[in-house]
Design a protein around this nucleic acid. Structure first.
Length: 432
DNA sequence: GCGCCGGTTGAAGGT
DNA sequence: TACCTTCAACCGGCG
């Protein structure tokens, strides 16, 4: 592997010239930035008489094929998406790796090119600004395969897997935690899909219903997010995004201050703060933990713009993924796909379902570790004597709640109602 | 235009 | 324990 650094088209052109390249193959990508490079490169190859072969490899299906099957418009519900999948047939199979590849050219220097894979420090001089932290996720394909095989060896767990029922407060991930490997390309979605079916004794040809919460269903959620992200203009923002509800979120100074408290785990709600601390420490957070904090930041409590929360997620998540992260923030903020804004996650109640003693909070907000169970999710309600005994005074050692959830969540439901009404009025004005 | 239905994962209070 | 209803009452798609 060579790593070449610079503006993609520029460095590729210099490599083409240097090695007198006749054929180029590459993997296509759905994100706007890569789409533009893909198309430009394809044109350049065509004009220069270089054979160009580009393939979809990151998703189960060729997104253009799925769009053709759905009249050019991506379905906005999972049910609609699965109808398209029923037409599309089985996903592409993973391809075996080649048994051998040609050796590298001997003379490889052409500008900023690394003969071995550069380290993060090497990249700092190019403006890359990595977080200075360690993670328990070891990088690489070997590790990805090991984790996948370990999970798939638990056949009952694989067969019974139902994402909404997994435990967000488990101290070890209750889900596969393969997302960093899939997002970064260490584990192919097609390989994982075929291994899951193999493990369940299923074939891609049988006419089984696909359960939305199953492992297979999860891969189809990913696929749907990619298709929508691929085919929706301005999908990474609210303005100019045709599927996104226009909602008057907080954006300025006030939003920045609330956002910072949220990011740093200082909202005063232990469940929210524990989840945000895990996000920053581990670079990973359970799906439902993400739901809790994303709802809290946006429509639930703080009314901060989802784009700001999305940026924080992308900074810390090892599995950050342009399509999926944007899709999910639409969902949680009730900006698209999900509209039942009156269903709101409770910052003091949601984690209690799976963790009555607050073990998760005690791990990730250790200042609270000596609070009794009945105050662990609302420590400000503890009598001062209890706070003193726990060695943590609320308002001094740990913040008071940044907002009153009972008041703000109700008020925000009213704001959501108004925003939806305004959207309808705008549509009417447009029509008449 | 209207009504009906389904929508991956809420909370609280039931059986 | 697993499932039910109610609460505030949404959207998009379909007939």
């Amino acid at each position: 592997m060579f790593v070449v650094i610079g503006r993609p088209i520029n460095v590729l052109l210099s490599v083409f010239e240097k090695f007198n390249v006749k054929t180029v193959t590459w993997e296509r990508d759905t994100e706007p930035y890569n789409k533009e490079i893909d198309d430009k490169l394809f044109e350049i190859c065509r004009d220069d008489g270089i054979a160009a072969h580009r393939f979809w490899g990151h998703t189960l299906y060729d997104p253009d094929y799925l769009l053709d099957l759905s009249d050019g418009t991506a379905p906005l519900t999972m049910t609609g998406f699965l109808n398209i999948i029923a037409l599309a047939g089985a996903p592409l199979k993973p391809v075996d790796p080649p048994s051998s590849v040609p050796g590298p050219p001997t003379d490889i220097y052409c500008g900023d090119i690394f003969e071995t894979i550069p380290t993060l420090s090497d990249l700092k001089s190019y403006g890359y600004n990595p977080l200075d932290k360690t993670t328990k996720f070891v990088a690489g394909e070997r590790e990805a395969f090991k984790r996948m095989e370990n999970f798939l060896a638990q056949k009952k767990r694989v067969a019974a897997f139902d994402k909404p029922k997994t435990n967000p407060t488990s101290l070890e991930p209750d889900t596969t935690a393969l997302s960093p490997y899939i997002a970064r390309g260490s584990l192919s979605s097609r390989l994982f899909h075929s291994k899951v079916l193999e493990c369940l004794g299923e074939t891609t040809n049988s006419n089984r219903p696909i359960l939305k919460g199953s492992l297979e269903g999860q891969l189809y959620w990913r696929e749907m997010a990619y298709l929508i992200a691929y085919s929706t203009p301005n999908f990474n923002q609210m303005v100019g995004n045709p599927v996104c509800k226009q909602i008057p979120w907080l954006e300025g100074k006030e939003a920045k201050s609330l956002l910072h408290k949220w990011e740093m785990g200082k909202t005063g709600y232990p469940a929210v703060d524990a989840a945000m601390n895990q996000l920053r420490i581990d670079g990973w957070l359970h799906h439902l933990g993400r739901h809790l904090v994303a709802c809290f930041l946006t429509r639930g409590d703080l009314w901060v713009h989802w784009e700001l929360g999305r940026d924080i997620f992308n900074r810390y998540l090892l599995d950050s993924d342009w399509s999926i992260t944007n899709f999910s923030w639409h969902w949680l903020s009730c900006s698209a796909f999900f509209h039942q804004y009156f269903r709101c996650y409770g910052p003091t109640t949601f984690f209690k379902r799976t963790d009555q003693t607050g073990a998760y909070v005690r791990k990730f907000v250790p200042i609270l570790k000596n609070f009794p169970d009945n105050y662990i999710y609302e420590p400000w309600r503890a009598p001062i004597a209890v706070q003193e005994a726990a060695g943590c005074i609320i308002g001094k050692d740990y913040p008071m709640p940044v907002v009153d959830h009972d008041v703000e969540s109700k008020r925000n439901m009213g704001k959501m109602r108004m925003a939806y009404l305004n959207a309808q009025l705008l549509n009417l004005n447009f029509m008449y």
